[in-house]
Design a protein around this nucleic acid. Structure first.
Lengths: 355, 355
DNA sequence: GGCTAGATTGGAAACGTTTCGATTTCTGGC
DNA sequence: GCCAGAAATCGAAACGTTTCCAATCTAGCC
């Protein structure tokens, strides 16, 4: 490879406009046909005679013509773009979900706008506003608060199809959900089976579906076992690292410390582990731990952590498909809600309670 | 909040087209001025008389008019969109970088396409192709192989401004770099100072700048100390988890096991830790470890790992600014290369070599 | 009140495509 | 070789903005 030499001739020109690009008109002129025929050669080649097609293609080739995307958007009234709105792309679950959505969308010619809202309702509203009026054809999103009036209003007035991820809103919007309640019931029952009674759960607030459902599953497990629900150990407020850290610290320092913690949330787990480390507690020796969602840390933390998994690729792919269905135009079906099951992956972070 | 009731009336209509949106023509008609004046009211309000402006604004308000983004793109010949091309958004460093770029760009009205190429040259080429011809105004990217002919060719012919992240290519392209060599020299010297001689480095191949530079810094540290370079412990090939795992496993099983490993790469660290865990080795008791870049795992792995940090926010912001400069049009300056320093953050993963 | 320069406004021409009705060119059967 | 019908092509009208030139208005000055 003689890169150095090869690139020298044009080496010191910074890429920029680089002369006018050929238009469909140029192609028409060069190939001696009308503009309409060139367009049809591109979009419906079977309606143009082979001879003509050849001439057009030759002209396209020689001019290096590529249709201008903006003009196509303008005329076709779409953008082949979809917004993916979440609170934080640094959350590995969101990153995986994005990849699944992207894979599905890209192969159909769509590009994805990624908008990370930092969990702020104002940024959320701004993101939704931005996608309207011809910036995107559809949206896939996880909003931060199912009750925020501003966001609800935006969604109600949204002019493009949308799919909610793991959120539940009293509007007719497609949604892809997770059966968090089942997962938590199962995990909690497992701990109860190991003899745990003082089990804590740290998770999102009840203002979003994952918070509500997880707490519900947690409570149901105790009820099913005929045991009193440890209300004082339910910490349901936020999915943030900080919340996880704060609550875990408090729980670990309490006189009647729990024997197990369910860190029900990706980021929460990080906070919980930080607290565990800071308090010098050992897992599973001093306390049992269950996490939610795969992540580097959950799979690796000195020994894999027992966790409630969910099929993130399926979830992403399904969200993409629901949206594509609507974007393809023909489907006027009522809104659909699809839920995916979780399953418990056994790690080494849980032990039976010593007698 | 009476959500249930409020949303009932429109509740069972799935969002969709929802009637024609008002155009600038409608606004002109309603406010009794010409189309041109409406446009100027929006884009240069100080050139229209206050009275007129009032009428126009009233009409806009009453019609709920918002300019059609596609038409603006068409006419203005831009898209207010920038591509962010990387190999894997699940890499937390990339996620942080994206957020920094996004913050800077969003406040100037740009949206970001995120394209995750999975490190495949074909997807990389496809991504770059896709961004051309009016789909984006510029690109920020980390390509996967600085020697791949296909990618180089794409870059050379790219018609929109671009910024490279941490890559070095013999073309006139803006780039934001990291002084990996300095970081590695420092880290290696630190280990040498602790008495280590059998120090291994696992990092990217020499086909990309981080690989080359890191190995260079590593070698220089030995030379500066007047010590022989442990060539057999330099494993420079890929940034992947798998490579980290494979090489770490081999190193740990070797008869003359190193006393320290530098896991020079975000993902590599995950692989290395997996190997360490599987081999039942303890850090820092059995082996010292240094990582690159902050991540949940580096900060948390039973005790924070000593690591070579770099200012990811500054890097992202700078990349965005370089691009914005070019996009603003007036700057015809030669390509710029800006390098950021690293610094060593002391964790607890290194110990002196016992005599 | 008339004049001029400057400030506002109107109207139309782009921007590059797709699409649709009208027109031309094939094709095959006689 | 002609004709009808089908197939292919042409040409022009959109799509919704911005922008430029020309036309009109306003204010200030004498």
């Amino acid at each position: 490879m003689v890169l150095g030499r090869d690139s020298a001739p044009e080496g010191n020109r910074v890429n920029k406009g680089a002369g006018k690009a050929a238009t469909i008109r140029d192609v028409a002129r060069v190939s001696g046909v009308s503009v309409g025929t060139v367009s049809r050669s591109l979009n419906a080649p079977d309606t143009v005679r082979p001879g003509t097609l050849g001439k057009v293609r030759a002209a396209i080739q020689s001019l290096g013509f590529q249709p201008d995307f903006r003009a196509q958007n303008m005329r076709r009234r779409n953008t082949m773009t979809v917004g993916f709105v979440i609170d934080d792309i640094a959350n590995p679950w969101h990153a995986s979900c994005f990849k699944a959505v992207d894979a599905e969308m890209r192969q159909r010619g769509f590009s994805l706008y990624l908008m990370s809202t930092n969990g702020k309702a104002s940024e959320e509203a701004a993101a939704i506003d931005m996608l309207q009026h011809g910036r995107a054809d559809g949206v896939i999103m996880t909003i931060n608060n199912e009750q925020d009036a501003r966001t609800i209003k935006r969604l109600k007035e949204l002019r493009i199809p949308s799919v909610l991820l793991d959120r539940d809103i009293p509007l007719e919007i497609d949604a892809v959900l997770t059966e968090h309640a089942t997962g938590l019931r199962q995990a909690t029952s497992y701990l109860i089976g190991l003899g745990h009674r003082r089990i804590a759960i740290i998770t999102a607030g009840r203002d979003i579906r994952p918070g509500r459902e997880r707490v519900r599953g947690f409570v149901e497990a105790f009820e099913k076992a005929g045991l009193p629900v440890p209300e004082d150990l339910i910490r349901s407020q936020s999915l943030s690292v900080d919340f996880g850290f704060r609550e875990a610290t408090a729980l670990l320092q309490a006189p009647d410390r729990p024997t197990a913690i369910i860190a029900a949330g990706n980021r929460i787990l990080v906070g919980v582990l930080r607290a565990i480390q800071q308090q010098g507690v050992s897992v599973p020796g001093d306390i049992s731990l269950i996490a939610c969602d795969r992540s580097d840390i959950a799979l690796l933390y000195p020994g894999p952590i027992t966790l409630i998994d969910r099929p993130v690729e399926d979830i992403g792919r399904t969200a993409a498909q629901l949206l594509l269905e609507r974007l393809s135009g023909q489907s006027e079906r009522p809104a659909q809600r699809i839920a995916f099951p979780t399953h418990l992956i056994m790690g080494g972070s849980c032990l039976p309670v010593p007698k």
